[in-house]
């Protein structure tokens, strides 16, 4: 059993290494002026980048914009890419930063709405329901293998986590990155990622009590 796991791990590492070389070659070609090389990278990573963005912001339109922005930014900054770093980690780092900025901006907008709402209430204006403004849009994808209800509950529980915990859950459990690679993406030590993962799973278990 352990031997099987070891072999599977070695095969996975080999696959990642080959993919990494392929990506680095594509980056070099792109830097030499071959736009098709960047097209190859976009096509290879469009689904995971979109998926990470979606799981972070729970909104398809925003996820599409964030994924697009990720690739445009990657293209702009391609000459700063360190060829020794996996392209995947670098790309996910751009995506993570953009999604976190987006979520912080959203919080700022929610606070502004709250302040405006409070002001209206104190002025004796129409008493608007705060939930109309602050409830984030949630969309549940179709054709799901997991029950819609469960995936909705889990997505809501994920949305309740701090952004860094949420990212760790998405990158580790949904994208299959190990803690060391997540550390590179988030710019924190591996052990910090591990601690965040433990706390995140603990909080998810707490939130999903009675559901699972």
């Amino acid at each position: 059993m352990n031997k099987d796991n070891g072999e599977a791990g070695a095969q996975h590492r080999k696959k990642l290494m080959l993919e990494g070389r392929e990506d680095t070659r594509a980056v070099r070609e792109c830097l030499q002026g071959k736009i098709e090389a960047f097209e190859f990278l976009v096509k290879k990573y469009q689904d995971p980048v979109y998926y990470i963005a979606y799981r972070m912001v729970s909104n398809q339109e925003e996820a599409k914009d964030l994924a697009q922005e990720t690739f445009v930014k990657a293209f702009e900054k391609l000459d700063t890419f360190n060829m020794k770093m996996p392209f995947r980690s670098w790309l996910y780092k751009i995506c993570s930063n953009l999604t976190i900025d987006n979520l912080r901006g959203r919080k700022g907008r929610e606070i502004s709405v709250r302040i405006a709402n409070d002001a209206r209430e104190t002025e004796g204006g129409r008493n608007m329901h705060l939930a109309e403004f602050v409830a984030p849009e949630r969309e549940i994808p179709e054709n799901v293998s997991l029950s819609n209800d469960i995936s909705r509950y889990v997505q809501e529980a994920l949305d309740g986590l701090p952004e860094n915990y949420r990212l760790v859950m998405v990158l580790h459990h949904m994208e299959g990155l190990n803690y060391a690679e997540i550390g590179k993406v988030l710019g924190v030590p591996r052990n910090t990622v591990k601690t965040w993962a433990h706390r995140a799973r603990g909080e998810l278990c707490g939130s999903l009590k009675g559901v699972v």
């Binding site: 469009q46 689904d47 979109y50 998926y51 398809q60 994808p141 054709n143 799901v144 997991l146 997505q155």
Partner: peptide, 8 residues
Amino acid sequence: NMPRMSAP
């Protein structure tokens, strides 16, 4: 096992 989503 959360449902995977593809880019549009």
